[in-house]
Each structure stands twice: as structure tokens, then as C-alpha cells.
Design a protein around this nucleic acid. Structure first.
Lengths: 199, 199, 199, 199
DNA sequence: AATGAATGAGCGTTCATTCAT
DNA sequence: GATGAATGAACGCTCATTCAT
């Protein structure tokens, strides 16, 4: 149907799997998971639907594979965080690295943010929940005041907001990201200092 | 929700429209918009799919009607806010009332939070975006530092987080809601004071 | 919904039945029978679908009633024709009157012309077939050459064509109708004269 | 039509598309377009409805494909006619070939004749109208008397009548077709001669 | 003379998935 | 490393029709 200029089906050297992931992620992020059909993905790649099934067993497996490939940094981050002392420095480093990880795989996280209902029903839902719990355990002081616990969690959420929600704030994305990070760091600091003072 | 004392077809005296809205909202919030079929809604109500079409012209109209019925308070809130002076008191009152409005129509807002990709493609998407922009304009000082703008916006977002995301924080919902509100108020105060100091 | 200026539902003095027929015929002729729904008819009249069922037992009965009301002249015409001698004058008078009758109830005949497949399955199909057969028996000389039989029948068909098909011929409708009539009369004359000569 | 020697699922080697067209045309011609459902077509072929959608994107595309495949001869005919001198011989040859083309694809033309209201709303409607206009331009002398213009057009219409309407005239179809052709040729001749005489 | 509320059947269409080749 | 051809299930939606009021 599409037919490229030189007649070749353009670089198809075993990288189809990757190309499927790329296109799928783009469409999932743009339109949502349910509204994106395998037909659509296949058409963009100029292959048949059946070809997708050569590389992935189900539609869900496509998103799962993306999740697994792209959230490795966050898994590592949590593992790293668990072994550190619960100091302010650690917490703030977590926030910094989390911000970086979010930015790195922005489309995936945008997708997860905007399709929570879907994600919850997918296999990745539980995994993701566990991760967030892991982060929470590192960043929150279990003996702290509830208000300060909320403040800490909200710091993480501020990072999400910075990426996905504040698009109609003027300013270039990188500056906004840095501003969000600064706010988040500040919130973590406040929560941490209150906790120490209260003891 | 509906409660049937006996096994009969229960009071069907013109309240079907409302019953459809109730069931639909519950299912939309639980499973998402696309994964909830009209068949499912109809079955729960023990009517046929066609009956739904007597009361609503399309599936989308069901969610639109819910949105219109349930977000009136927020519309009013914005209108009120526009006429107030841009003082700290005003901003904090906005936050307080917004928190209350969110809580009031929790299932709808949970739905919107968790189905953003879907909502964006629905008619309500634009309306909602406009509202958030309205809120932003009241709560943000356009001359403030970008960091403080983010802080203000993030305050609103903290309220969302308090309702929908922090479910696995221990503590009863009402206490968590109050804690979120406190954090949000504090963020608004900080943003406001920075702005004044800088002048 | 529609609501007229003075608040009254405009002249509804028992003429609803007629108004249903009018609107239905217009829509049937415009869009075809199957593509016209009772909902559409009801909406145009600003009544409910159920109201239609007060006046007609089924959708089919609406078209049947129109057929019966509007094709009486053709029935009469056939009855008259049967009692006349099979002269050229009779045949030509039939053609003239048929042309007039077609013009009189143009929308109905346009509908029947353009929805033959539908009409065939409706109750009126057989009736109509019988009528055409009646006309044929009057206008055709059974002993004539097949070519002349066709010529006679085609004369009738020319009248149809004049009304419904030749819309993109320039000239005002009345002139075209007269031209069609002239051609039809001429064809009948030719057929008749051949038959006489051959004897 | 298809003919199954044994009760098995018969030769399904890439001829399904054609088989769909065959069955669809038969049913469309018998019952009309709207009254023929895809379910019905699928059942006759012993495939599922979804299989139809592998071969055609919509129901409309089935009829469009039939139209395009079967009316090619008429398109060619018009093209040929445009390049000929406007002599009587040309006009009569057009009529002869048109008659042959109609006969060749009788079911399709019967369908179009009996479902004009439907066809008008389909994509093929405009194309068909254009063709008829093309034929008209060849066969009609624009300076001729309106009566003779009608006579020429009516000649074409006689051919239609010969195929579809005169079924209850006795005589075998081929003889009737020839008789219609003869009448049509005669009408064209009369129209042509009048035009010459008037000059 | 009409409405409000509903039904049952069916429609065209789309989807993820399968499997022989 | 793919395709061609198909399936089964479901979907949103529309229709003519019914009936108590």
C-alpha cells in the first residue's frame, strides 16, 4: 500500500520489534490504550496485524514490554534508595533521580498518568503500585505527622504535574521541569525538618 | 447503591435517568469509560440497552450530563474567585472550597483523573481544561517567580493526590483529606509570601 | 422543542392524520421509504412517535393510505377505459389522462418509481402491478406485433420519464410534460396504425 | 450461482471477494439494498460477517465495487461516442451497444432501476448521473425541438423498460429485448430526421 | 388525541486473536 | 519473519412497535 521510494521496505533488519514498540508507545500516549487498535499500529508500520503477533503474544504484552524496558531506571533507583540512610540528602537525591527518570521516558509516564484506569486492569498495574509504595517507604518517615507524610508524597506528585499537567503554563519545558524539581525538593526538606524538630 | 427491598422491578417512576447516571458513574469510575459498555449499565439496571437511548442520545452524553450536573460548584467557585481581590485569603479560600467540591463529587473526579486520555477526546475535555485555566488564573500571580507559580499549581494537584492517589497511606480518608488541604494551604501561603517579598 | 410563536401547537384540529401523510410523503419521496424513520416524521410534526400509532397501525399503513387516497384517479381511469371501444381515440385519451394523473400526484409516483424494490415487498406492490396490467390491456392490441406492443407500453413509460428522469433537460417542467405527452401520443398512434395496416 | 459439488466448505482460494460480490448483487437486486443485511450475505456464503469486512471496508463499498466492475463497458461506450460524428449511424450504434451493455449486467441495472432513491444517496449516484448525462449529450441534438429531445431520451428509457418492466408481457426475454431495441432505434431515427428537416 | 417509557430485534462496524502457508 | 484469510465476541446505535396513563 504505502510503498517506499526505492521499493525496499526500509530498514527492517530485525528491528521490527523495536519499531512496533516505538509506534505503539506514541499512539498509546496520544490516544490512550483502548482507543489504539492493533490495526492502526500495523498500518503505520506498513505490516499486517499478524506480524505484530509474531513479535508479541498479545496487545497487553506490547505495553508490558515497554513498561519493563523503560522503567528499569526506577527499579534501580528504588533498590539504591533502600540501601541508603534515611537522610534528607538521600531523599532529595531520590527526588532528583526520579525527576530525571520521568523525563527520560516521558511518553510512557504520560501514558500511565493519563490511562490509570486502564493500567490498573493491566498486569503492569500491580507492579507499578509496588514501585510507588517502594518510593513512598524511602521518602516518608513513618513516624512523621500525617501532614508531613502527605507533603512528601505530594512532592513526587509535583514532579508528575510538572511533566504532564502544566503544559499551559508559559515557559519552556526544561525550565518548568527544573522549577517543579525545586518545589519538590523544598517540600521534602520541609517534611524532613518538621519530623526532626518534633522528636 | 440503589437498594431493592423486594425482587420486583422497583420504583421506576421517572427516576430512570438518575439511576442510569448513578450506575454509569460508578462503573466509569471503577473500570474506565471505554471498558464500560452500555450493555453492562443496562443489565445492572435490569432494562434494555434501548432504554438508555430513551434518556440519553449517546454514551458520551451520559458522561457529559454527569459532568454538567456535578461540576456546577466548581464553575460557581471560579466565578466567585474572579470577583475577589487577589489576596492570600482569597487564594486559600479557593483551595478550601475546591477541596470540598472535589470531595463532594469524588467519583466523577476520580474518573476524570484516571481517564484523562479518554476525557481529552470527549466533549467535556475542553470545558474542563478551561476551568483549570480559570482556577490557575486566580491562584497564580503572573509576575511571580516560575517556581512559585509551580508551587501554587501544585497545591491544587496535591488535593487531587489526596483524594485519589494516597489510598495506600494509612489513616481514614477524612483525616487524609484534611492533611492534604493543610499542605495545599501552606504551599499557597509560601508562594504568596515569596511574591510579596520579591517586590 | 419547536414551540410556535403563540404557544399553541398550531392548527391541530383533527387534521393530524393528514399532516402525517403530507410529511411522510415528502420524506418518503426525498429519501426513500426505509431511510425515513417514524422518529423523523414525528419530529417534523412536533409530536411523539406514539402519536403516529394513534392514526396508523404500522409504518406500512401510512404509505398504503397515501397510495389509496392518491391513486383513485388511475383506478377510475382504468374502469373508464375498459368500457370504451379500443380505438385510437380511446388509447390517446387514456394516455392524456394518465399523464394528468401522474402530474397530480407527482410525489407519490416519484416515490414509487424510485423505490420499486421496496414497493414490491409492500402490500401496494400487487395492487400497483394489477393496475399497470389493466392499463396495458386497454392500450395494447393483443394481436399486434410484439414491436408495437412494446411501443405502446413504452409510451406510458415515456410519461414517467418525463416527470422523474428528465430533470436535467433544460426547459420548464410543464413544457417538458407536454413534450413527453406528445411523444407518447405519437407512439400510441404509430402502434395503432401499424396494427391496422397489418390486418 | 456458486455451485457446491460436495457439502464441504468448497474452494475458498482467494475467490471469496468475488463470491461476496455475486451473492450481494443477487440479494440487492432481489430485495433492495437496505433490506439486505450483511448477516444475510454472510450466511449464504457460510462465513461470518467479519469476513466480509476483510474484503470490503463498508457495505457501500460492495455495491460500489460492483458498479465499478460492471459498468466499465458503458464508460467505454460514452468515450467512444464522444469521438464519433453526430450522425444517425452513431446514435443508433450507441443505442445498440447500450442495449447490449444493459443486458450484460442486467442484475446490476435492475438494482439501480429499482433502488433509485438509495442509489442517489450512495457514492455511485453522482457517477451514474454523469454517465447518463454523457449519453444524453451524444444522442441528443441540442438544437432540436424539445419534443425530439424527449423522443431521443425516451429511446434510452425504452431499453430500460424492455429489461425491467415488461416482464409480464408474454414472449421470451430475448425477443422482447430485440423488440425494445427496434422501438428505440426507430425513435432515434425519427428524432434525427425531424431535426434535419427543420433546418 | 396523545405522551412517556420502554422493548426486542437487528444493524453496520471494530476488535483482538488464530493459523495455515 | 511475515502474510492472507478468517473468526467470535462485542460494541454503539436505530428501528418499528407496544402499552399504561
Amino acid at each position: 500500500m504505502v510503498g517506499t521510494m526505492d521499493g525496499t521496505k526500509q530498514q527492517r533488519r530485525g528491528n521490527t520489534r523495536q519499531r512496533i514498540q516505538d509506534v505503539a508507545l506514541q499512539l498509546f500516549a496520544e490516544q490512550g490504550y483502548e482507543k489504539t487498535s492493533l490495526r492502526e499500529i500495523a498500518e503505520r508500520l506498513d505490516v499486517t496485524k499478524a506480524a505484530l503477533y509474531y513479535h508479541f503474544r498479545t496487545k497487553e504484552e506490547i505495553i508490558v514490554s515497554l513498561f519493563e524496558d523503560l522503567t528499569k531506571p526506577i527499579e534501580d533507583l528504588i533498590e539504591w534508595g533502600r540501601e541508603q540512610p534515611h537522610t534528607l540528602q538521600t531523599k532529595q537525591e531520590i527526588v532528583r533521580r526520579y525527576s530525571a527518570a520521568l523525563t527520560e521516558a516521558e511518553p510512557l509516564f504520560r501514558f500511565m498518568q493519563e490511562n490509570q484506569a486502564t493500567v490498573r486492569e493491566l498486569r503492569i498495574g500491580d507492579t507499578f503500585r509496588d514501585r510507588m509504595r517502594g518510593l513512598k517507604d524511602i521518602i516518608i518517615d513513618p513516624e512523621a505527622d500525617l501532614v508531613d507524610q502527605v507533603r512528601s508524597l505530594s512532592a513526587l506528585f509535583t514532579l508528575h504535574a510538572g511533566l504532564f499537567v502544566m503544559q499551559d503554563l508559559e515557559g519552556d519545558p526544561e525550565r518548568k521541569r527544573k522549577a517543579s524539581l525545586e518545589v519538590a525538593l523544598d517540600m521534602v526538606r520541609q517534611a524532613h525538618e518538621h519530623a526532626r524538630r518534633d522528636r
